[in-house]
Design a protein around this nucleic acid. Structure first.
Lengths: 216, 216
DNA sequence: GTCTATAGATAGATAGAC
DNA sequence: GTCTATCTATCTATAGAC
């Protein structure tokens, strides 16, 4: 079904390539593109720097591969969402699914947020694969907002701003690191905190996008 | 009234120190702590690397000074906010003031967001001055939320999560760079886009924190 | 497919003249 | 207060043996 690499037909063993990707994902999430040296990636992957260049032509390609893998995982999580039904219920499902995807690994939020903020530097390395996945992601979210507004279930807000707001709310939370842990008083990725976050962000989002505007 | 540096009593001329801070702020905002070399800071400031070290003991001190200056500017903007009145009106004023502060310079949002996301790397360099300013900032916001919840004007939400959400909504928007511009279809820092953003984020926030929870 | 060795550039930081 | 010169370490990337 999905793409299979030519060599390494399957097996549960982690190939060298996967090992590199795992290592790089952790390091890029913590220190960003510029903050990571291939020397450290190689060291932690248990091989020499030159071996990295055998699997990836350059640092930027390694980063792109890591980013693409994360976007794929988030997109896969959204695959089971219903395309019909109440817009409010679909929006709730979308938010919860994205939260679950980001909560599934402590590297996803940080890496996604960094890839956005470091965009000015990384633009040159954008891949069509990542762009396509992003477009699918935002397309699905846009449809919910647009159809909900058309049916009157949701407020009529500018869809791009709503999408931008969702990214800020959801991705930032899981990328906030020590800052967020200081603020919330505990780990971000514990199951109890993930539950609390959902209990806050789902009603916050639904209320923000449904009820009428207040004036002071 | 406020602190005055020993030398450079005033005058409208930018001192070498200010020139360095301005240059560093622009570069750190674009490329982050690790992405900036002091060589480039010196070059763009019109002096040698060694001159930098005359004003700042090291790269981390330069970064801290830049960050502290930005936090001071945001805090100063909040100084004129009323401490009494309707919680909804105060919350609206807070959001609009923070938006104005972030919109005043295209380096503030990116640098603030980066300082959070890069926190794991930068923690060692935190300064008491910046911590104090952050505490004041969050203190003011917390009071609005707590008092609003006590009076029944606002929903009773976990204050830390609400603060975290505000940071994600507001700071991320102004730090989203090309990503945000692609999504919104135009520049983030134009006066018209700033107005549109306020028109979205103020009702979104007020609705999110006031009305009752929906169920699907 | 993995290695050692190395290239050329740049990193942050220091010494010391003026 | 600003400079040139230099230090050591690290950076991405390549060459070429095995």
């Amino acid at each position: 079904m999905s793409r299979v690499s030519p060599e390494a037909p399957s097996a549960g063993v982690a190939s060298s390539r996967d090992k590199i990707l795992d290592t790089a994902e952790a390091l890029f999430a913590r220190s960003g593109f510029q903050g990571v040296g291939l020397r450290e990636v190689a060291l932690r992957s248990g091989m020499s720097k030159s071996a990295l260049f055998h699997y990836f032509p350059g640092k930027a390609d390694l980063y792109s591969a890591v980013l693409d893998r994360i976007l794929g995982a988030v997109l896969e999580g959204m695959g089971s969402l219903p395309e019909r039904g109440s817009a409010v219920a679909r929006l709730k499902g979308l938010v919860e699914t994205i939260v679950d995807s980001l909560a599934a690994s402590p590297t996803r939020g940080p890496l996604l947020l960094r890839s956005i903020v470091e965009g000015e530097v990384l633009d040159d390395y954008e891949t069509p694969e990542a762009d396509e996945k992003l477009a699918q992601l935002f397309g699905a979210a846009s449809r919910i907002l647009t159809e909900g507004a058309a049916s009157g279930e949701l407020r009529s807000v500018p869809v791009p701003h709503a999408l931008q707001g969702l990214v800020g709310l959801l991705v930032f939370h899981f990328a906030s690191g020590h800052f967020g842990e200081d603020l919330l008083g505990g780990p971000i990725y514990s199951s109890s905190e993930i539950r609390r976050f959902k209990e806050f962000v789902v009603p916050f989002t639904l209320n923000g996008l449904t009820t009428q505007t207040l004036q002071d």
